[in-house]
Design a protein around this nucleic acid. Sequence first.
DNA 1: CAGCGGACTTAGGAGTACATGC
DNA 2: GCATGTACTCCTAAGTCCGCTG
Length: 879
Amino acid sequence: MTTGLELKSKPIPSKGLSADEDDEDDDIPLSINLKKRSHSRIASKEDDDQDNEEEEDDDDEDVVLAKNNTSSKTSRASTRKKPRKTRIQYNEDEDEDKNTNDNDDEDYGVKSEIDSDSALSQGSQSSATTVTSSSSKPSPKKVRKTASTTASKSKTKSQTKSKSNTKVKKEVTTTTSKKVKKETTSTSKKIKKETKPKKIKVENDSQIAQDTEEYKTLKVSKVKEENIDETTTDENDNKYKWWEANKDDDDTIKWTTLSHNGVIFPPDYEPLPSHVKLYYDGKPVDLPPSSEEVAGFYAALLETDHGKNPVFQKNFFNDFLQVLKEAGGTRNNIKIKKFELCDFTKMYDYFELKKQEKKALSSQEKKQIKLDKEKFEEPYKFCMLDGRKEQVGNFKIEPPDLFRGRGAHPKTGKLKRRVFPEDVVLNLDKDSKTPEPPEGHQWGEIRHDNTVQWLAMWRENISNSFKYVRLAANSSLKGQNDLKKFEKARQLKSHIDNIRKDYRKNLKSKVMLDRQKAVAIYLIDVFALRAGGEKSDDEADTVGCCSLRYEHITLKPPQTVVFDFLGKDSIRYYQEVEVDKQVFKDLTIFKRPPKQPGDQLFDRLDPSILNKHLQNYMPGLTAKVFRTYNASKTMQDQLDLIPNEGTIAEKILKYNAANRTVAILCNHQRSVGKNHAVSVQKSGEKIRELEWEKIRLKKGILQLEPKELKKDKKYFEEINDMKDDEIQTIMKAIIDREIERCHKRFARENDKKKFEGEELLTEDDLKEWLDKIEEKKAAFDKELETGIIELKPSLNTVEKLRAQIEKFENRIQTRSVQLKDKEDNSQVSLGTSKLNYIDPRLTVVFCKKYGVPIEKLFTKTLRDKFQWAIESVDENWKF
DNA sequence: CAGCGGACTTAGGAGTACATGC
DNA sequence: GCATGTACTCCTAAGTCCGCTG
């Protein structure tokens, strides 16, 4: 059976995200499940025996393997073919390399040990010599690890990169000069970038595809038409229920007919009013519009983190100067040289002012603007796909701006240039009318490729990749993809046991590659790591499983691993977890000297190797499916634990807790809002205030009926919990708050009266209010001094007091729960998992079974996106 | 047959609408 | 009824993975 359920019932405290919440177990943070899972899945009862055995053979394991290796020709041949890693490419064990790599050996001395062949790190003894002999020179990896400057980073990276390129390597066999290598790579790279994509070819291909698929397509389209007829009788076109239609299992053809109205381009740049200028060295600069626009992009970000980031500033400034140069320099002959002498504040202030003005518009005006905008956008919002109206997702071309890369992105701040119709490729069927390009422009290209889902595309200038205009999330194409994704994940259910059995076994494989595969799959399965593809040196340095490096994990015997690395979007993954013993040993081996910081942990692995391996278990299985599978599985298990009782609000809270477990598993984070701390503190104070009120009432009871104390000692225990100085603080806070409120109210009411021409409140009126507060304050002081509580006259019996106290207790309870929820959620983002990982049918079933309206758990957008799930599932459905 | 282009999903933050508490 | 805080949407960056090609 599944391991999930048992796990959940015995949560282990997380050492990860919330170190000080060890005893909170209701939301079962990540590592819980993880740890538990790791145990139940991998550690068997024979664990101990195995371990003993292991410990013995572990040390000489390598030797054995090494022997094995030298005699094994087949395995050598198989691994030699794949010298792919970039960062830590160990050199081949080929002779030619050995001869020519004296210099490189120093850092890749590792190679002879680890890389040679299938043997899992063969005799470390033999390699030790290599290492020591070459250790005189510092490895570039070291630099890489500590260097934070882009310069040193790119140097080492490009160097290592060259190693991944066998061709290049051969060219430089006679030298080990890093410079030469670097040049070689960069030129080859340049050449690559300059080669234009083969547009014609694509078109031809799609043509061929269309032709060969004609028969099929025709059939399909007929089926579809029939379906439209059926469904459109009671619904409009938009409500085509693809999930009720016959399955179309040919997924290379995405559509038969497609027409649309093109895309919306951002408005042309409007120069700033003449009094708003950039100042250079104290003097106003007359910028040509093109460069003023760029300066404006920066000015708008002046007070943000981006604006303050030196890399951002540098990249912006370079591009700004470039644009300025192209426009022929400033118009008043000021030579801009130094960023530090530029003063953007006037521009910044102007933008702020504009924002305020916009905000200050009357609601009528705002409404009108919105209406106009909607009317203008209407034609672009929809397209016709196979005769049905479908929503388009991002029908607006991205406006020019400064590129806001995440994390330490080397290109952050660079100018993302304006996209013109000439840059845009449109995709639609042959018979549809081509939308009119904007006045005075032409489309870059018109394509008729029905093997793809995009309507328009252009090439972006930051990393030279493509941007696409595609259908919205609620479209049939996206929906079908989504359903397929979850069905694939469900399919994994029937293979997972087998896969786990295998990788558990292979954790001890004598073949290094297999052992690395096993550990990698283990990490992906248990800790939901991403595949981790290779990245180039002009991107932020982030990693996933296959690209983990030496410094990203710390091993704490006996079997604890600390992960600390930046994952997608430079989000930190920090987990201290227990792993399977054998995994721990393997990781130790993967980190064994001469490996050092900067080196790849999985030096023989990359996602494509891993995925190829996974396909053996199940067609279409890739690393990312594990994330979907484990997320949905965890959600199902968590939901199963929720009792069907209590109010809807309580059920929602529990659902969210389950959701949170998944989010934590997937490491979905969000930055804490800037006023989070303040608001948490406020809530805390409010709770203490309520507690004080409660205690006060209890004291009141004893005043009224001292005998009560004996009857229920426990009930009154807490009255001494609150010391006088805290009480005083609370009282002061209450008084201060009331005074402030009083002043605000006075100002507000007078504003209103002024506006309406009524008689204003006088200072005396204000004083009257304030006096009342003074009275209250005096009463507080007296109470504090004498210890005698003056209760409201209505609270004159013990019963009434008790009832009142209960009310307070409830309020404290709700507030505390809210506060805890707020804190728990402050760093965790629930949305991503709900949107992408948790099978929506789980939520739908939960709603049906527990009587929770779906609107409470799915927003409008989500309901649209997951309509297929909402309408097709019955309450017995299981993931 | 590795490497890369291309097309697709997944991601967090900014911006905006809406709810809630006083 | 307003200010403040939260929820939701929009935006686009950053991943994954497949399949083509030199």
